[in-house]
Design a protein around this nucleic acid. Structure first.
Lengths: 333, 333
DNA sequence: TTGAAAGCGCTAACAT
DNA sequence: ATGTTAGCGCTTTCAA
């Protein structure tokens, strides 16, 4: 069964292919009567223009590539709603490329290679160990890019990131002011947000109080609850703290549950603060106080920024920094 | 800055474009020395073949479209790992298309139209109110399709679904045998799995015990915890049951939390069983007994089936039915 | 083993 | 207002 092409439509309507092309592209120079004939032929033949051929002819694929490491999957999931909705509204397709850090043969580059070959009009990248390399690649091939969770800017390159430092500093300051200084920071190994900056905020607050927040107070954890929960269940057998700051809600739930298993009352004996304001935070018992990050909007903004670049529109901010705020629930006093 | 093409490489290497094409496609008729020259030129020019042009020439896009309603997002998220990993291994790209049921202008069809225009080699569909229509469309345009969560089969059409009926019947039977018959079923409005069959399983078990499971025992809920939790918090003010079966873990957590808020002890006063075995089930307090559905594998299988169709390989099962099993944790006795 | 040339299905000048 | 034609960047016969 042969696919019907623009030629078939042209023949059916008794016009040239150029005219058919004009009507499917909404040109306004076509005589209404002709347009009708063409439209009828299109309907009769169930013709759908081949986007691939169109892409070749116009050098535009109307598609955007989203590239991220598998380990960031949980975070990207939350964001992909905003990405998808916005892309759909603006008539772009999105293609997903995941990189996996494990394994040999430089898989990351082979993924980037696919992205380049696909001739996506633009790409959105996520903060990862390899992000500099990825940015370099996109620049080399001159593809408009927006990076999420990492601060950069350049020609054809914008970024959207979260101001993690201000909020962590603010929160820490507040506790320190009240004399609460036995604080630890649980830092999941991967995150959308730059958690080093989160840690820096804590350190600055300590410094401002004439104290030191040493790296031994930072606990690196897996992003898998199956691993982090047993860890904390064990950890709290012989550790107590006043406040646990977390880089992600999921780990905060592991902390809450692990601590409660050891008879530590939340928030009376220990306070816990999560990050991202995901549904985990409201499902937790007690519900988590957490730092709200507008994840959906981050995705939406990324696509909007990208399409602006693609359309050559003026961009006022190449480097967007999104601020956050604390949502108080029951895991803090 | 012009993109470098196969012509540039040909010129650089002093061969014709046909030869370049041969080496990038791994033809074994090229003389090693020539191949070297071409490879050098490719490297020197950083040439990446244009997949769009190749797609036009070969009528193959090496891309697979995944189509699902936004409301199923939470479920698809869990599965997309399996889809992505498998697609990457088999060298297919995946493009995501979401349909949204709200709104006017028949948006579902406009999405399907994009899928057709994209000339994806194959498509993966998900169970939804509109799935029959979608299947029809794919059949009309002759695109190989696999449907997840819905039983169908045909030329160029396979399906993978979950046997929800057997498990619900089995579980219900077990409780009924022990004289426990105050059972309700919480049915989220959207699901990957056909929850009507789940309900049928319950009904059959009741019938086998000479009892009736009326539809008033089925509670339809939102898939948003923000909505389902307040509902159950209120519901359990004046309702008690022995067992609550749920179509999805997230709603089960809402049941657990809502019931506990009203002093109902889980599992002593009431037992709760979730479905899917997501991370929600282990984060819940008590941890949920839940029906394990191999979601990752469902996604992986879908892609494998699809690529088999694309390669014209023999397919033994067009209609795959996946079975499930109960994982006992602490929300049941 | 290599090159020439046609063609994939469109768009976009350029003519008419 | 419509038709003709030259690409877009590849793959794939067919010749040499």
């Amino acid at each position: 069964m042969k696919k019907t092409t623009i030629y078939d439509v042209a023949e059916e309507a008794g016009v040239s292919l150029a005219t058919v092309s004009r009507v499917i592209n909404g040109s306004n120079v076509v005589k209404p009567a002709t347009r009708e004939r063409v439209l009828d032929a299109i309907k009769k033949l169930d013709f759908k223009p081949n986007q691939i051929a169109r892409g070749l002819a116009t050098s535009k694929t109307t598609s955007i590539a989203i590239v991220f490491p598998e380990s960031l999957f949980a975070h990207v999931k939350d964001m992909i709603g905003g990405i998808g909705d916005t892309a759909r509204t603006l008539d772009y397709n999105i293609s997903i490329y995941t990189t996996e850090e494990i394994g040999d043969g430089n898989p990351v580059n082979s993924v980037l290679e696919k992205v380049i070959k696909s001739r996506a009009d633009g790409v959105v990248l996520f903060n990862s160990d390899n992000v500099d390399n990825e940015i370099e690649m996109m620049k080399k091939y001159n593809v408009p890019t927006v990076v999420i969770g990492y601060e950069v800017e350049d020609d054809n390159l914008c970024s959207i990131s979260v101001d993690a430092k201000s909020i962590s500093k603010e929160i820490t300051n507040d506790y320190l002011d009240r004399g609460i200084d036995d604080i630890i920071f649980v830092k999941p190994r991967q995150n959308l947000v730059r958690l080093d900056e989160f840690a820096d905020g804590i350190k600055e607050a300590f410094a401002a109080h004439g104290l030191t927040f040493g790296d031994e107070r930072i606990i690196s954890t897996s992003t898998h609850y199956e691993k982090s929960y047993p860890f904390f269940q064990n950890y709290f057998k012989d550790h107590r703290h006043q406040l646990v700051l977390n880089g992600y809600d999921k780990e905060a739930v592991a902390v809450v549950n692990g601590a409660q298993d050891n008879g530590i009352a939340i928030p009376d004996d220990m306070e816990v603060i999560g990050m991202m304001n995901t549904s985990y935070s409201i499902m937790s018992r007690p519900a988590l106080t957490t730092i709200h990050v507008p994840v959906y909007e981050l995705g939406a903004m990324a696509i909007r920024l990208l399409t602006k670049m693609l359309n050559g529109e003026e961009i006022t901010e190449h480097k967007v920094i999104v601020s956050t705020h604390l949502i108080k629930r029951n895991s803090t006093k």
